[in-house]
């Protein structure tokens, strides 16, 4: 929609580059065995039947299953070389102990952080992941999945309009009218009345929340769990509210 203020590509560009956050769908190769000489041939066997399936595919190496493995025991350089030999491109690691990640980093495989998950893969950084202070050590250089720009909408979202903040948060500084639909893979903030439909958290981000100054929706959904207006009799309608998931139940808490 034209009202969205994310596009700013006016022609005369002076700067040579721009740094932007973005999300990518990547395959994770979870190591169950630390030895490249075991892993690499096994991958080769598996994908020989489907040649080209992983050709030049960027892949993230999952370290979560290597519990109790000392960093010296894993030959990351050899692993990376073996994978490249199969035309698979390792780009980083996820999960595992800080020692293992440092060892991988030394071999040119930086640790990546998974979006919307602070679960077992991460050694519990504090909440509010985007602004979280970086973990100690070289882990601080985590390149991908840093703060994603939120989609900001400064005009009323009107009946029949649908706004989707792909891969991030959606902030509407006006009202979302009945018959309109706002969707975000992250959180949804409405600094006006929410009278239409709001769907946060995409398909699986159960941590996503919806905030509004005046809670009066037609439908509300987080990570696929939803409630229609008829099911909101007990919710604090007409007030400032935040919505979140608690297990499989939706919770409506008054704000302020």
């Amino acid at each position: 929609m034209s009202a969205a203020s994310r596009s700013a590509n006016a022609p005369p560009r002076l700067e040579p580059f721009r740094l932007r956050g973005a999300n990518f769908n990547l395959l994770v190769l979870r190591l169950l065995d630390p030895r490249p000489e075991v892993v690499v041939p096994a991958i080769g066997d598996q994908f020989r039947r489907a040649p080209g399936f992983l050709r030049f595919a960027p892949i993230v190496i999952g370290l979560a299953d290597l519990e109790g493995v000392a960093p010296g025991e894993v030959d990351f350089a050899g692993l990376a070389q073996g994978l490249r030999g199969l035309e698979i491109v390792p780009i980083g690691t996820t999960g595992g102990t800080p020692e293992l990640r440092n060892a991988a980093l030394a071999a040119g495989l930086p640790p990546l952080r998974q979006v919307g998950r602070e679960g077992p893969d991460e050694p519990a950084p504090p909440p509010a992941a985007a602004e979280a202070p970086p973990p100690p050590g070289p882990v601080a250089v985590a390149p991908a999945a840093a703060a994603r720009p939120a989609l900001v909408v400064d005009q009323p979202v009107r009946a029949g309009q649908r706004i989707w903040a792909q891969g991030g948060d959606l902030i509407v500084t006006a009202t979302v009218n009945a018959g309109a639909e706002v969707i975000a893979d992250g959180n949804i903030h409405v600094y006006g009345a929410l009278r239409g439909r709001a769907m946060a958290g995409g398909a699986q981000n159960t941590e996503a929340r919806i905030f509004t100054m005046n809670f009066d929706p037609e439908l509300i959904s987080i990570a696929g769990y939803y409630a229609v207006r008829d099911g909101l009799a007990a919710a604090p309608l007409g007030r400032a509210v935040q919505v979140r998931l608690e297990g499989e139940r939706m919770r409506f808490d008054p704000l302020g």
């Binding site: 929609m1 009323p156 029949g160 309109a180």
Partner: peptide
């Protein structure tokens, strides 16, 4: 009012 809201969206887009 709902239909007018719809038309306003169409005007904008």
């Amino acid at each position: 009012v709902r239909d007018s809201d719809r038309i306003l969206g169409v005007l904008q887009s």
